[in-house]
Amino acid sequence: MNIFRLAGDMTHLASVLVLLLKIHTIKSCAGISLKTQELYALVFATRYLDLFTDYISLYNTLMKLIFLVSSFSIVWYIRHHKIVRRSYDKDQDTFRHYFLVLPCFLLALVINEKFTVKEIMWTFSLYLEAVAILPQLVLLQRTRNIDNLTGQYVFLLGAYRSLYILNWIYRYFTEPHYVHWITWISGLVQTLLYADFFYYYFQSWKNNVKLELPA
């Protein structure tokens, strides 16, 4: 464990807690894409299949449980909570996210480190995570007015993967056989998808104006 990875995990945890806080306290999910949340629940479900088979550390198991429970409860809140669901704007959240699932799965069948069920599901979860933010970014472009919590949520989500890239660089130079091209490339693609959001987020923060994405 290195500082970049710990910071990355904490930033990722913070993004989920910010989202849960928003939904739980103001009982609203306005501006949040249910599709992205469903994709994230699928990412964790397919990535943490080894939750009970491979014990790595208490930290690892605890964090996996937190991510699983939080991602599925966010989906539940938006879909079934009697008050929250009313603020879900399904007419705007129209990204065909199922079209992301199949290509990621097919790609995982072809490009993976080992052709086993667990490894293919793990690779699938990596590819899916790289594109899972797309419905949310599309929704932000559409709704234009981005409330602070949603902006912070997307920012933290992007920041966590950027910190992971620093972690991969650190591990590459400190651990002799640490080479995972699939992880690195999909993580890089994921971070690049946030690039323009980061730009506008930083601009709005610098000029102290409300965050607006160009149409």
């Binding site: 964090m63 667990k118 992880t183």
Partner: peptide
């Protein structure tokens, strides 16, 4: 499972 199989990152 040998070491290389297990993914230790979240």
């Amino acid at each position: 499972t040998d070491e290389s199989d297990v993914h230790d990152e979240l």
